[in-house]
Amino acid sequence: MPDRDVSLLRPYLLTSGRTEPIDRNLEIETQVLTSELGAASYAGLSFERRDIVALCTKTMSVAEVAAILGLHIGVARVLVADLAALGYVVVHRPIAGLAGDPAMIERIIRRLEAIS
């Protein structure tokens, strides 16, 4: 196989051949936090999964996970979805319909106005 294909192939290997996350709708701003199970299972995990569980002891988004670990965003989504399915991380997804919630938008506006 020509070398140039390696970078394209790698994400598929990382995600065990899946090209879509288990939950294909996992938003990239979804918050990820390592669970107690994940922390306890840390030693048994390998490579990127281990890195994610170690990283997310502090809550961060899927996008941050991707950026910090140098993963393509699509790969990070799959791995996080995998870990969430196994209970190793807890995900906090955006609330649907928030953009149509005036009270919430007003709250964000007030807080943003306070930035100086």
Partner: peptide, 15 residues
């Protein structure tokens, strides 16, 4: 490795 001490995670919104 210690389990997370954070008890709450924020709701993400985006622009």
């Amino acid at each position: 490795m210690k389990p997370s001490v954070e008890s709450r995670t924020p709701t993400p919104v985006k622009i």
